Amino acid sequence: MLKEKIREIARSLQDKAVATRRHLHAHPELSFEETQTAAFVASKLDALGISYTRMANTGLVALLEGTKGPSGQVIALRADMDALPITELNDVPYKSQNPGVMHACGHDVHTTSLLGVAEILLQLRHTFAGTVKLIFQPGEETIPGGASMMIAEGVLRNPAPARILGQHVMPELPVGKIGMRPGRYMASADEIYIEVYGKGGHGAMPHTTIDPVIIASHMILAFQQIVSRNADPTMPSVLSIGKVIADGAHNVIPDKVIIDGTFRTLDETWRFDAHERIRRMAKSIAESMGGSCKVDIRVGYPVLINHEELTAEVRALTEEYMGAENVVTLPVWMAAEDFASYSQVSDACFYRLGVGNAERGITSGLHTATFDADEQSLEIGAGLMAWLALRSLGAS
């Protein structure tokens, strides 16, 4: 059976996959700086005899065609390659060797899994007709995101995939479990940068100043009304302020206050309406109190939408490969992911790969200095994605 053959090949590649993942983990690179990572991936593709092209500077796209007769069917599979500006605290042999940079989001697992998929498909190319597009993407962690750049450069053309699949590690899920959610799954994420201007002076003489600290305080409180009194209560929205700098002193009112925050939602129309409300509210509050402000809202990733019918199909196939008891339905998550850019222009399914193992102490969350993954997930990640690709192309 195809399923058993895939499992057999994935098992045989496990030691190789662990070595690959540990190399990547030990040599992380930040977004759009993945030159050595891309070179490493290219060397692996070269060894397999798979041709590729460069995109978005450090990205790679490879095509792998089946030999079971002619077919115009195309499916795309995506893995991201970049790491985060975090100093790793794990005491492991494969600890990051690049100070201040760490694969704290599991992109080393994603890249390793997709390389494993390539090797499985090569061994089974006689079982399918059609084309699998392998996307090794840079810059997932930094807007505008590598996905949007690769889309602009034509990654979803020539040939155009009918669907695109992506997977992401999830430490909250035990290894051996897969998580899915149809429809709206992850939020848009936009960055808010506001500078509030007043007139500084002595803290004992506030009547001679235009206090930007007070103005900023009113803004921060008022912004909460945008969600609580303007957003549809059934539509998740988050407006959080995470950074405020009023660089005065205990007795000095500053000239300027800086406010940084984020706005997230699951509706693209409301998203941009909220942007305008933030701008208008900030300006009106500042001016009404005698000050002024500059508002910069940097548009980030859009809402990630898992195509309903495709996700139902992927779930059924995943249950067939993993067992129905190992596939769970996920809640909406207000974090963001630039795979969302693909989901805005193509039928897409983004699912979660369990990598946690409480018995081994592998429980740390994403984007933490102690994040790690149970490496058994490499065999599962490669095998499952290969199975989904092959079945999507009619292999049996």
Score class of each variant (00 low, 15 high):
2 L>I: 12
16 K>E: 13
21 R>Q: 02
23 H>V: 02
28 P>M: 00
35 T>W: 13
37 T>G: 03
37 T>A: 08
38 A>F: 05
41 V>D: 04
47 A>M: 10
50 I>T: 04
56 A>P: 02
59 G>V: 00
65 E>A: 13
67 T>S: 15
67 T>K: 14
71 S>E: 11
77 L>G: 02
84 L>H: 08
88 E>I: 07
91 D>Q: 14
95 K>W: 09
96 S>M: 11
98 N>A: 15
100 G>A: 14
105 C>F: 03
105 C>S: 02
107 H>K: 04
110 H>M: 15
111 T>N: 00
117 V>C: 01
121 L>H: 00
122 L>R: 13
125 R>H: 10
128 F>W: 05
131 T>R: 07
138 P>G: 12
138 P>Y: 09
146 G>I: 09
148 S>C: 09
161 P>N: 12
166 G>D: 06
172 E>K: 14
172 E>I: 09
172 E>P: 03
181 R>Q: 10
183 G>A: 14
184 R>I: 09
192 I>Y: 09
195 E>M: 08
197 Y>L: 03
202 H>S: 11
204 A>D: 11
205 M>Q: 12
217 S>L: 08
218 H>K: 14
232 D>W: 08
233 P>Y: 15
240 S>I: 01
243 K>L: 05
251 N>I: 09
260 D>Y: 06
261 G>T: 00
264 R>N: 13
265 T>E: 13
266 L>S: 08
274 A>F: 04
290 G>T: 09
294 K>M: 04
295 V>Q: 02
306 N>H: 07
307 H>I: 01
310 L>A: 06
314 V>P: 01
315 R>V: 01
325 E>S: 12
329 T>W: 08
347 D>L: 03
348 A>V: 05
349 C>V: 01
349 C>F: 00
351 Y>M: 09
362 I>T: 14
363 T>L: 12
364 S>G: 13
366 L>W: 05
367 H>S: 10
367 H>M: 09
367 H>C: 12
368 T>G: 10
369 A>C: 06
371 F>L: 11
373 A>S: 15
384 L>V: 05
393 L>V: 08
395 A>S: 10
